[in-house]
Amino acid sequence: PKTFTVRIVTMDAEMEFNCEMKWKGKDLFDLVCRTLGLRETWFFGLQYTIKDTVAWLKMDKKVLDHDVSKEEPVTFHFLAKFYPENAEEELVQEITQHLFFLQVKKQILDEKVYCPPEASVLLASYAVQAKYGDYDPSVHKRGFLAQEELLPKRVINLYQMTPEMWEERITAWYAEHRGRARDEAEMEYLKIAQDLEMYGVNYFTIRNKKGTELLLGVDALGLHIYDPENRLTPKISFPWNEIRNISYSDKEFTIKPLDKKIDVFKFNSSKLRVNKLILQLCIGNHDLFMRRRKADSLEVQQMKAQARE
């Protein structure tokens, strides 16, 4: 059969595949998951960018029917699209935890997720434990972290501290993590990171009916409305179990609360494409929200049993 080349970029690797012309998103996605040995597939997706807007490959649509650049290799980023409510309970396989760790670490270092200075240092110390193993002063000599990107630039700029002083601060914590295996250190990292306000939130710029610019956040727990100046604390939240219906028509998006006494919330997003993405993220997040509130599927039960062994 006729094929074309796709390049898949994960958080720590790049792979190329020959993709058949007739393949649907799911065929390619499954191949990538099989190649990675990843079974907790429901958190992930294949991301591409179209006109500066993020988009995700649809499972039931042909790969080539997507609005992707047809120049080969066609490139997709294999990334977490949905986040667990509780990493320790939900992320079972080591590979799943590792991919989340890398993705969240990048978001924090790139300042996509705000992290206060003290927490940044603690997170850095777990990242160092994950990479270097137990602290050994005879091996980890002064300057051993000089080439590592460990802290957000904002945090570094906040203090009059030399790189040596930062290394000392991080190493003091690092030495405390003795005995933690890589996967444990990465899980400790995620347990701290998941409590950061911006963790796992997809932000979209919207305008309310008065034309005021606001932010919409979509996450594991529901929809949130923010002042653009404050991405940390929502002005209004709509938890999934308090929403009756969500819909869009062109650029307009409507959230209908369950409680009829609460006003319907309507806003406009910049593009129809953005509304489609918002709805997709809502459906996926709500689906996981519901699944968490049912018993584990047989597959997850088996994986948890395996992980315990």
């Binding site: 819909s247 062109d250 709805l279």
Partner: peptide, 20 residues
């Protein structure tokens, strides 16, 4: 082809469809 310009998701309905 026509782009679909509307979409809807019944959050409550999905919850009710959920097997106990």
């Amino acid at each position: 082809w026509h782009r679909r310009r509307t979409g809807t998701y019944g959050v409550l309905a999905a919850w009710r469809r959920l097997p106990r």
